[in-house]
Amino acid sequence: MQTIATIRIANSALYLNGQQMFAHEAENAEVFFKALYQYLKLEYPKFFKMDSLSKLGFLAVDALVQHTAEIKSYADDEIAVVFGNYASSLDTDQKYWNGVAAAEPVASPALFVYTLPNIVQGEIAIRHKWYGENMFLVLDRNNKTAVNNSAALLLETGKAKACVAGWVDYLNGAYEAEVALVRKPEE
């Protein structure tokens, strides 16, 4: 499997292939995500309705698309999106549950729709009009390689020509995204 480019978002900074592109010390993740949104010059109002996990994955993939011309050469169903994380959607799950468990119970539909980890893949598919394969794995933090193994499988079976694959994890303000564009090595 050949890696074309890697985007990493962690510690209030954005990295392309290991090199820091942008840093912004912010008091919390949401403020940093907004700064990153501005740095990437995005105009996508729906972004502000997303939960934190979706914002994180969305920003990572947008940065990846901006920095890899190759990604535009694939047909709309040739790119797979394979993500993994530890915390699933637990961050939003807690927020939703706090409403239901309150003295005056409130069930928020706007929160509930984000109580699934793969919603971020839906947001990315809508943004880039990608109709290809989707897979979301929830893994122990020491088992991140399973994400790449599963991406490799989709390339090997020919189900995808390229894959946006990586780790997108968010819980209680702590975040880490590392996503790469990968493809089969040229023969």
Binding site: V113, A125, Y131, E133
Partner: peptide, 17 residues
């Protein structure tokens, strides 16, 4: 195989794409 509608996060695609 799997696929995505690239249409809506909680509503089904009207075209079943």
């Amino acid at each position: 195989s799997t696929s995505n509608d690239a249409n809506h996060i909680s509503g089904p695609s009207r075209t079943g794409e």
